[in-house]
Design a protein around this nucleic acid. Structure first.
Lengths: 195, 195
DNA sequence: GTCTATAGAATGATAGAC
DNA sequence: GTCTATCATTCTATAGAC
């Protein structure tokens, strides 16, 4: 409970103040509805209930808000990643990590798609050094020691399948618990075919 | 070859003129780089090499351009879908459709993510009647007669896995042929687990 | 930490000439 | 089919008062 309300951000950046956390939280909701480009500072300010100038006092640019938002979301993965890195690099460690990834993806459903596919965030993940390193670390853990083309494609498919399925129109009627159970089941099935 | 250059749009709408086709093609490239909201009419006009007013003469609104663009892309799926609907509703028909979907996804890599995840297009697919019906038809074909929750999640994962994998950072170094072969292989493997 | 007020550029969209 | 010119609106961002 307190972990969800914690304002600390990941990847060694300065923790957020209460006012900053309010802005980032509101921004995230708008980003998932309209995308980053489709969200103006005015919309964010209105959602928080302050003026644009107040938002600019907390973040110098719109990009700074996006960075803080991505940091906040990736921070949720960091704990799971730490545990995975500590518990070796075998198949069982990968499955434990996958379960936590699924938990996060189901719990934050609508957020995941934005994080994975918004063009602005994609560019940020590719160009911003700390994000680059974090994603490399994440994929390394998901690969569990392997690195052949088939293994890489398998991880790419798995990450996309989980992230995409949780918001897919065919699945919107699933409650979280059912979605979680079924996702774990089908994910395991996909991994069983592994050579 | 002539099929790729054909300006005809799907879903019963008016075919596009040459000028309109030029605009929609340029718009699609920009949409995949910046998203729909991140693409202005000025950017589209510049890419085509005309003024904004010339673009407005061809399409009354920006939304009309987006609709035409989505129609053009979904049109590529329509042929495969017709064949699938004609060849029954068994497991083999689904596998044939899947192969064609993979071919399309690999061939148009960067486009797929935009179509599946851009918030403006997502809203359009959900609210625009002809798109709604087309997507329903597509999912029905992919389900191959089934409709239980597990089957729906399986299709959701499959569609997301294919659409997401083709642009995934872990797979950017794959050439089209390799990506196609491996995707078909892993997709079949995923389906073999089916009960 | 928030406000009012504003600068300066870019946005979607229209009118009318060629 | 394309142009120039312009509309009202919105955008990011800043200055300065409280």
């Amino acid at each position: 409970m307190s972990a969800t309300e914690d304002a600390a951000t990941a990847m060694g950046s300065t923790p957020l103040s209460v006012a900053q956390t309010r802005i980032v939280t509101a921004a995230l909701t708008l980003f998932e509805q309209h995308g980053v480009s489709g969200t103006s500072l005015q919309m964010i300010a209105d959602a928080v209930g302050v003026t644009k100038a107040a938002v600019y006092h907390q973040f110098r640019t719109k990009e700074a808000i996006v960075v803080a938002a991505v940091e906040m979301e990736l921070g949720r993965l960091e704990e799971a990643l730490d545990a995975a890195d500590a518990s070796g690099r075998d198949q069982r460690a990968v499955e434990t990590l996958l379960t936590q990834v699924i938990d996060l993806a189901v719990g934050r459903r609508r957020m995941v798609s934005t994080l994975q596919h918004d063009p602005v965030i994609a560019r940020l993940l590719a160009e911003h050094k700390p994000f680059q390193q974090f994603m490399e670390r994440f994929f390394r853990a998901m690969l569990g020691g392997k690195n052949d083309p088939t293994a890489r494609l398998r991880v790419a498919m798995l990450a996309s399948a989980i992230g995409g399925a949780v918001t897919h129109p065919l699945v919107t009627d699933f409650d979280d618990a059912t979605l979680r159970t079924e996702l774990i089941h089908l994910t395991r099935q996909f991994l069983e075919g592994e050579s």
